[in-house]
Design a protein around this nucleic acid. Structure first.
Lengths: 142, 142
DNA sequence: AGCTCAATTTAGAATAGTTCTAATTATCAC
DNA sequence: GTGATAATTAGAACTATTCTAAATTGAGCT
């Protein structure tokens, strides 16, 4: 997908929420799409600065919140560490590698979320389910 | 289970980790067992004060960390809210009610955690799995 | 093109939750 | 009892984030 297409998708989603497309929002969204390593707001700030040197950290927070709000990005938290941002919209869990601190997306089989949700007793109406693994990821040596 | 038995369990676990049983640790653990509403450190602080008026907040944090460390208590986080503490040791998920802010324990069927863990690709070794639901809990009117 | 007005961005101050520091107090082994 | 170690304490410091108020931008109208 080209950067232009991403921009289109972005403007579309923003418009849907009655919001404007701005250079800051565009660049931040592209930064997230570009390197999907679940960066923190600070890390996004650093990356965005090379393209928009005068952007402020507050704007990074604002824009990230906006992107989360219009469902283009997911915010992920581990314990009380800084919030991380993830443009993967498919249903997925997160694996948090305790040695490296890295976060891996784990795509979920079709029906798993429903299956998990189905354990809820009557009276519990879940709008979202989050699954977090913690442990050690040993990338298979080829 | 009597408070004395809890104390015994506590001293035992502490001893296992080479730690001492102290009045602060005892009282804090009992406060958690007493009212299982997933209190924050601040809330624990307030409750403990009525028994140990001179305890400091730092000690509350220290003791809670100690209890978590020797597996008597679980720390639970929702987004970037304050850490909450939970003495329920059975495998369970958490349901976070967005209206009330309350947290409910959801006991898990025997095999669910294994089932969920089994979706991990080769190379991922999970030490723990956490499942968090978010939504609305409507307690069934009797 | 210029005007208006709301949306957005900005810098810096403020906040919340937690951790750190250094000093004091309690407890264990001898 | 004495010395060493563990635990507690008060308050300072820290981190991530949100708030505030002012400046800038841009879309829609004329």
């Amino acid at each position: 997908m080209s950067s232009t297409e991403n921009s289109d998708a972005l403007s579309q989603r923003l418009a849907d929420s009655g919001l404007r497309s701005t250079p800051q929002r565009e660049v931040i969204y592209n930064v997230l799409l570009d390197k999907r390593d679940h960066p923190t707001a600070d890390e996004v700030y650093v990356r965005v600065k090379s393209e928009l040197p005068t952007i402020s950290l507050a704007t990074v927070y604002n824009c990230l919140e906006t992107l989360v709000h219009c469902d283009l990005v997911r915010a992920v938290n581990f314990e009380r560490g800084p919030t991380r941002y993830c443009p993967n919209l498919r249903p997925h869990a997160h694996f948090h590698d305790e040695q490296t601190g890295k976060t891996h997306d784990i795509d979920l089989p079709e029906n798993l979320l429903d299956e998990v949700t189905s354990i809820l007793p009557r009276g519990y109406d879940a709008k979202s389910v989050e699954i977090i693994f913690r442990g050690k990821a040993t990338p298979p040596t080829s």
